[in-house]
Structure formats: C-alpha cells, structure tokens
C-alpha cells in the first residue's frame, strides 16, 4: 500500500517461506486432530479446534502475506470491519437456529 515499500523491506523471501511453512504445518495439524475424538469432551470440540487452526492461518496470511501489519489505520479499519460483518452474518443466522427449539418463540 504505502509508496516506496518493497516486499523485502518487511519480511523478505525467508519471511514468505516461513508463512508458507506455517500454513503447511497448520494444514497438517488440522488433518491429524481430525482423528482425535474431542467431541467426547464437549460436543463440537473437533470443529472448534479446526476453526481455531484455520483462524490462526488466516491471521498470519493477513498480517504478513498481505502486509496489514505495516499498513495504515484505514486499512486496519477495513480489515476489522469485514470481520465485524462476518460476525453479523453468523450472529443473525444463528439467532434463527438457536431459537427454533421448543419455547415461547418456536413455531
């Protein structure tokens, strides 16, 4: 984004390779933990762990690969806003699913 910056100023080729390595390792961990039976701890634990790993990978991509870490406040605002919108989508969709069980508001 900012002028006169080249990629190498930030993390350079080794940095990008490190990001790549993190992503590969993350994928591998996702694969391995899929075989653990975490749902016996509480239902949905497997999904939660997979999502947590995916979220970590995404954060690394955004911060380093997409240079958000070195960007201006406006870029940060845009990046955060998109998550806020994602949150809206999930929250308002889930308010439907979670209120379909028996109760005063169920059909």
């Amino acid at each position: 984004m900012a002028e006169n910056h080249t990629d190498h100023e930030h993390i350079g080729i080794p940095g990008y390779l490190a990001v790549f390595a993190i992503l590969i390792v993350g994928t591998w961990i996702t694969y391995v933990v899929a075989f653990w039976d975490l749902d016996s701890i509480f239902p949905g634990a497997n999904t939660l762990l997979a999502l947590a790993i995916a979220f970590t990978k995404m954060t690394v991509v955004m911060l380093y690969f997409m240079h958000v870490r070195w960007s201006k406040e406006l870029i940060w605002l845009s990046a955060v806003a998109s998550f806020f919108w994602l949150l809206i989508m999930f929250a308002f969709t889930m308010q439907d699913y979670f209120t379909r069980v028996s109760g005063v508001f169920s059909a």
Binding site: W85, I88, F92, Q95, D96, Y97, T99, R100, F105, S106, A107
Partner: peptide, 22 residues
C-alpha cells in the same frame, strides 16, 4: 440494510423469534 435480510424469510420456517427481530 445488512441486518434485515430475514424479512424475506418470514414464512420460510425460520423461528418466530428471528422473524420478530428482523
């Protein structure tokens, strides 16, 4: 405008609560 989409789904089988919020 992003918070009102459920008004297309009042009879779709979404919960009554969601219908009221939307």
């Amino acid at each position: 405008g992003f918070l009102v989409w459920g008004h297309h789904m009042f009879v779709s089988g979404q919960s009554i609560y969601a219908g009221l919020v939307f």
